[in-house]
Design a protein around this nucleic acid. Sequence first.
DNA 1: AAAACGGGGGT
DNA 2: ACCCCAGTTTT
Length: 399
Amino acid sequence: MPRRSTIRSTTDCAAAPDCAASAVPPDFGARVVQWQRRHGRHDLPWQNTRDPYRIWLSEIMLQQTQVSAVIDYYQRFLARLPTVQALADAPADEVMALWAGLGYYSRARNLHRCAKLVVQQYGGHFPSDPALLAELPGIGRSTAAAIAAFSAGVRAPILDGNVKRVFARCFGVHGHPGEKAIENRMWAMAEAALPAPGPRQSDDMVAYTQGLMDLGATVCSRGKPACLDEPARCPLSDLCVARREGLTAVLPTPKTRAPVPERSTVMVVLRHGREVLLRLRADSGIWGGLWSLPELPVPALPFDAEQAEDDALAFGRAFGTPARAAMVAEMTHVFTHFRLLIRAVRVDMAALALRDAGGAAAQAAQEQWRWLSLDRLDELGMPAPVRKLLAGEVVPQLF
DNA sequence: AAAACGGGGGT
DNA sequence: ACCCCAGTTTT
């Protein structure tokens, strides 16, 4: 193991937190602090106070909620319940009413619980230790650090979605930040990124914490980071791995979505001349109310083409005299929740059963069945893949 | 319509 | 200690 190497990519060191930290240049915190003082936001209603109650209230409201949506609620809430004591004493109904419209109502319930606890356990004074704050309901590690930093200048790192995005890009972290291993590395980075301790620590922590939030919200945004057009707007642009490597669009790595389950079905294309047999699907469920092809009962796995052809012939006998059956197509249709592998068996009918027989059966089945000419596909509502199949877009030579 | 999000809760 | 969820907005 090399004792100390030159700047290396964080992707080289899979799990080592100290290595993650080594990706952070020593002046990172100072850059953010300076940037925030000149270019960050300074006039939000919860800034320029060290009142832990106001800061806590704003942080809870800001969880998963944009600044613009929070401002009015914050002012109204604060005007009505100006202290943690007032909040603790308020009836739940009033708290909920003040929250109505903000969403995520468990935040409001936790807020109320938390206020009561702060009054009971801490005499109405919020602790400044992030570890203690994080024990209170509705306050996790990141929110605790934000409250401690803003209210008491405590040197503790935040790591919310915005910060994860900034770190992933700046330090070239690949992998979904929701993954435990990735998040651990980011916490290590967050520790290493803090401005140096010192006489100005308290003020620096306020600027730094706000600066990270501002950077993520206004410069290093999800869709179109400012560096694409105006790199000068980002104080980290000369450090940023994603910018250097053109990876801002792929970092942070999105969550790998679970491979959608695959189902399969066998559809029967029962042909008599240019006519094809269709079945009306039930109103509920997939393709509800659409005319589709009849399907064979779920074939046992593994799929057996010969068996399917035999089953299709048997199916055809219910409608007359089938001449031959053949597997003709395989296609995959993608739904939101699963992929459907559609196999099609074509059955050519030599003759149809007497009209009365088929017709009576159809009536009895509430007109679930009908024949349609391949030249009139437009006349009925059909699932897209079925229409494609019948239109000859899947196997033109056969239809 | 699909992704993201900070904390809580369950295992 | 891990995995997953709830509930809502944004892209």
